[in-house]
Design a protein around this nucleic acid. Structure first.
Lengths: 228, 228
DNA sequence: ATCTGGTTCGAACGTTCGTTCCAATAATAA
DNA sequence: TTATTATTGGAACGAACGTTCGAACCAGAT
């Protein structure tokens, strides 16, 4: 219940970040909050949600421990704000990209490119989103879970489209989740100095995945040619 | 240094689990330790390493808090023992399976089947291994990291074999890590009541992956046939 | 100069953390 | 039985945790 109807330490702070989601960081308050979220993302990235203390977060934000509570009511809500913003943004961008593509195969490529690009451009936030999946309880957790389900369903829809258009028959669920696994695992191994950039990585993964789901039956042992 | 030359609370406990790795759970001590590890795996699975307290672990083991320290010197070492045992076992089983396969494609399938089967049969331990990757520091962490590298290299070798045998040219590194992503992500979504069993899941993922890396160029838009 | 509302922080609250000490108990050997 | 060793747990340690409180500070308006 504290999750759905939170009591804020200060009435000014309360009215602000309740619904604004600080997306439009206009006011002084919103701008400062956005900076705190950015620093908190760094700390969560390095120490994990449980491992990071409010004192760590305060120190990295250049603010006192108690001062933090002027901007959010609890550590849990801080994580929630980070995850919600990150997820909302990636879904937003995806929707814009999908508007411009109609071919089922290209739409899947667009999905993958969007995910990988955003993932690498915001690696820390995306790790916090992927890794701290179970950290939020009750209301907070439910809201993020809903966003996740929405994102999942978009991808599922793309794969169903593609399956119908090509008359294939794979399990869309297994395919979606395998694809998510490929992409979300990136944060555990990616090294920007030695590994390919976002566009190339998206292409490699996209090729593996699309070829993987695109033919019936087992792997052919001989070379193939177009017959029709 | 505490990691490489640990001091045990009790001299009896010290000599035991130092090198035995409790694999051969013969003595009373080893059997009890194995049970504690099993219960601790459950708790780490549900609450994470940082989120699980020694008091949680003790309660689930039906033992007093201080009694736990007779079996291991620290919470960190407890996680280390779980991870080391799990990883050692999966590598062991893999080596046995690979002995029986010589065809490069079948060897990759064997790798995937081994991983997925063990993953689903020991889902909790495998989540603790995958998810709590950065929890161990210094000596403990280095040892697990070495096992991980070994496992990675085995898979890399299999993909290189396959690439040479089929005269393909994908990036083995990206391929390995994509495959690991697919498989290790399972713990975030798998539902034994509704999702396919290990053999079928391994087959689906194996098919996606192998077809994905098996052809050159882009996805063909037409049907294919064997010509040679 | 005073007032007002937004912003900051030092100090402290009560709780929980991992770990230790040491006495008590159970098992085994003599 | 007694002597010895292996195992257990109650109580406590100091440190760290998330959160709260109230006083202080700062800006801009009056």
């Amino acid at each position: 219940m504290a999750a759905t109807t939170p009591t804020f330490g200060s009435p000014q702070a309360a009215a602000r970040n309740r619904e604004s989601l600080f997306a439009a960081s206009d006011s002084r308050f919103d701008r400062r909050l956005a900076k705190i979220l950015a620093h908190a993302t760094d700390v969560f990235y390095e120490k994990g949600y449980e491992g990071a203390s409010m004192r760590d977060l305060a120190r990295h934000s250049g603010m006192s421990l108690s001062g933090m509570y002027y901007y959010f009511e609890s550590k849990e809500r801080l994580l929630y704000l980070i995850q919600k913003y990150t997820f909302t943004t990636i879904v937003e961008r995806l929707r814009e990209r999908l508007k411009q593509e109609s071919d089922p195969e290209r739409r899947i490529h667009a999905f993958i490119l969007n995910h990988v690009q955003y993932f690498l451009a915001n690696q820390k936030a995306m790790k916090v989103l992927s890794h701290e999946d179970e950290a939020l309880k009750n209301g907070f957790g439910a809201e993020i879970a809903a966003l996740k389900r929405e994102y999942y369903r978009i991808c599922l829809g793309l794969l169903d489209e593609y399956k119908r258009a090509r008359k294939l028959n794979y399990s869309s669920r297994t395919a979606v989740l395998s694809l998510f696994g490929m992409m979300n695992w990136i944060y555990t191994w990616y090294n920007p100095r030695t590994d390919p950039d976002a566009e190339q990585l998206a292409e490699e993964m996209g090729d593996i995945f699309l070829r993987g789901i695109s033919s019936q039956g087992k792997v052919n042992r001989k070379k193939k040619a177009v017959v029709n």
